[in-house]
C-alpha cells in the first residue's frame, strides 16, 4: 500500500467571478521510503499538490490518502496533528520565524508536540547538528546564509520525526553547491527510512537524487504510475 496517494485530485481556485483550475484529476502514489521528484512548468500546480499532501489545504474533488487514511475525514484539530506528526515541510523561501533563533525555530515544532523544555534544548541541538549547524543555533535567520536557513528548516521539518518530508523547491534560492548540500541531507533522510517528495525545476537534480520523476502538465500527472 502506498504511504501517500492522490486520487483523481482537482483543485479549482475561485478568483472573483472566474475560476482557476490548478489541478484537474491528478493521481499519484508515493511508496513508503521512496524519493519522488515532481517536475513541471511554473504554474502547473506543483505547490498546490504539495500543499494538499501537507494538509494545508483540501482538494475541490478527489482524495488524498495518507497511510490508508483519507484526509477528507479529518477535522481541523486532526489535520493540525497530521501536519505536526506525520509531515515535515520545507519551503523555497525557508519560512523560518525571523524573530527566533535557529534553535528556537526548531524548538517551536517540538513545543507544539508537547516536548518538555529541557528535552527540547537537547533535541534541537541534536537536530541542528544532524544538518551540520551545531554551532549556529543561537543565530537569527537573518544572520544565516540561504543554504544554512534551508538546513535549519529541514531540521525543523524533522523535529517530530515525521514519516514524510515534503520539499517545495528547497533549492530554488540556492546556488548549485548549496543545492547539492541540501539534497544530500534529504537523500540521507531517505536512507533513514523517510519518504521524500521533492518539487523542483531542475531536471538534472531530480534525476540525480530521486528514485522516480513525475511530471505535472495541464493539472495532471504523467508518469505517475
Amino acid at each position: 500500500m502506498p504511504l501517500l496517494r492522490a486520487r483523481n485530485v482537482s483543485k479549482i481556485y475561485r478568483m472573483g467571478a472566474g475560476t482557476v483550475p490548478a489541478l484537474s484529476g491528478a493521481s499519484v502514489d508515493v511508496e513508503r521510503g521512496e524519493f519522488v521528484a515532481i517536475l513541471g512548468t511554473s504554474g502547473s500546480g506543483k505547490s498546490t499538490l504539495l500543499n494538499l499532501f501537507g494538509g494545508l489545504d483540501r482538494p475541490s474533488s478527489g482524495e488524498i490518502v495518507f497511510d490508508g487514511t483519507c484526509l477528507e475525514g479529518l477535522d481541523h484539530k486532526a489535520m493540525a496533528r497530521y501536519r505536526l506528526r506525520s509531515i515535515g515541510m520545507v519551503f523555497q523561501s525557508f519560512n523560518l520565524i525571523p524573530t527566533m533563533s535557529a534553535a528556537e525555530n526548531v524548538s517551536l515544532a517540538l513545543a507544539f508536540s508537547g516536548v518538555r523544555r529541557a528535552e527540547r534544548r537537547d533535541k534541537a541541538t541534536h537536530l541542528l547538528d544532524s544538518v551540520g549547524l551545531a554551532a549556529r543555533g543561537q543565530h537569527r535567520p537573518s544572520e544565516l546564509s540561504g543554504g544554512e536557513q534551508q538546513r535549519v528548516s529541514i531540521a525543523r521539518a524533522l523535529a517530530n520525526d515525521p514519516q514524510v518530508l515534503l520539499a517545495d523547491e528547497p533549492t530554488g534560492n540556492l546556488d548549485s553547491t548549496r543545492a547539492h548540500e541540501v539534497l544530500e541531507i534529504l537523500k540521507a533522510q531517505q536512507q533513514r527510512g523517510k519518504t521524500i517528495v521533492l518539487i523542483t525545476h531542475d531536471q538534472e537534480l531530480a534525476t540525480r537524487f530521486a528514485d522516480r520523476c513525475v511530471r505535472l502538465k495541464d493539472g495532471k500527472l504523467q508518469g505517475a504510475a
Binding site: 494545508l56 484539530k77 493540525a80 501536519r83 505536526l84 520565524i97 524573530t99 507544539f112
Partner: peptide
C-alpha cells in the same frame, strides 16, 4: 500573519 501561517504549517493547532 506569516508567522501564524508558519506555525500552522508546522503543526500548531487553532487552540494553541
Amino acid at each position: 500573519t506569516r508567522e501564524i501561517g508558519i506555525m500552522k504549517a508546522i503543526g500548531g493547532d487553532d487552540r494553541t
